[in-house]
Design a protein around this nucleic acid. Structure first.
Length: 318
DNA sequence: CAGTGTTTATCAAACA
DNA sequence: TGTTTGATAAACACTG
């Protein structure tokens, strides 16, 4: 068993798609958004595999950022000079990896052209309407192999506002995507929310005050990313032994309603039935806020079958 | 000019 | 087996 933190297997390709890697980087940032260069840096820091052939994978990564609607571009403020924009996660992209695989999403996340018109009254929509570049992909055409873009909801879709204080016009208690802080730190986060922490990355980006508490909370989200440290005896379910260094300590981060510590790491590409929906974790589905996966990106059959729970433990990289 | 962002195309793997 | 998704390559435009 390799010791986490050691780079024994570092030259192997991590079991994450560029989408999930990028999402990790963004979610790991204190402001929930990063410039491209910082995304590069994050990935190279944590995954030595990506310290080589940088031109190749960085091109792929840029392609993913542009191509996938789950990533949204946030222009820099005038007082944040620099090259390129910030990249954030679309708030409704949460069930992208609902199947537990971080290599392949169950369904591509798409937004509809009209949807970003739905919440004009939102202060953040105001921001986007006034700051978003004409070439923004919010509402742009699909890519070449996007023949089956599913319907998207008309709810507000702004980076990381849902669950951070009801800034959007989305219903309160709505969908929390798995890269979101409240899903990653589990119920502990509810206490944070109850305390009224008014945090949103873009709020801060826009100059709104963001309490410093957020940083410490966020830093607990991806301990494997931040430290690659040993896990203090918590449950580990690495995607493979080779990637144990990238597996995650769930201790203190992810609990079900009974306070049980649960595995919260990526599972193999094709989850085995035994690992799959994790029947023992059904308790996780309690709680109204956790059941509001966006129907927009789910198929009706999924809803009927109760699929798409954004809190599938495999989605929680914490 | 280098870095960033967009778009098209192709192929392979995974999925339904 | 057809469809969807991800990876890769490449061309091109834009920008600091």
């Amino acid at each position: 068993m390799p010791r986490p933190g050691k780079n024994s297997y570092s030259d192997q390709k991590p079991p994450y798609s560029y989408i999930s890697l990028t999402a990790m980087a963004i979610q790991n940032s204190s402001e929930k958004m990063l410039p491209l260069s910082d995304i590069y840096k994050f990935i190279m820091d944590r995954f030595p595999y990506y310290r080589e052939n940088t031109q190749r994978w960085q091109n792929s990564l840029r392609h993913n950022l542009s191509f996938n609607d789950c990533f949204i571009k946030i222009p820099r403020r005038p007082d944040q000079p620099g090259k390129g924009s910030f990249w954030a996660l679309h708030p409704d992209c949460g069930d992208m990896f609902e199947n537990g695989s971080f290599l392949r999403r169950r369904k591509r996340f798409k937004v509809l052209r009209a949807e970003h018109m739905a919440c004009k009254s939102s202060p953040m929509m105001h921001y986007f309407h006034h700051h978003h570049h004409p070439g923004s992909k919010l509402g742009t055409a699909s890519g070449p192999h996007d023949h089956a873009a599913g319907p998207a909801s008309t709810m507000s879709r702004l980076p990381h506002f849902q669950g951070y204080g009801g800034i959007t016009c989305a219903q309160s208690g709505g969908f929390k995507h798995p890269f979101a802080i409240e899903n990653i730190i589990g119920r502990d986060y509810k206490g944070v929310m109850a305390s009224g922490l008014p945090l949103t990355s873009v709020m801060h980006h826009l100059g709104y005050p963001v309490p410093p508490q957020l940083s410490s909370v966020v830093n607990s989200m991806w301990p494997h990313v931040g430290m690659l440290s040993e896990s203090m005896g918590s449950v580990h379910v690495p995607p493979s032994p080779e990637y144990a260094p990238f597996s995650v300590s769930a201790k203190g981060l992810y609990h079900n309603a009974n306070g049980q510590t649960l595995p919260a790491v990526p599972v193999p590409i094709k989850p085995t039935p035994s690992l799959g929906p994790v029947p023992s974790l059904t308790g996780l589905q309690s709680g109204p806020a956790q059941l509001c996966s966006p129907a927009s990106v789910m198929e009706k059959s999924d809803l009927l079958e109760g699929k798409g729970n954004p809190l599938h433990p495999a989605l929680l990289l914490s």
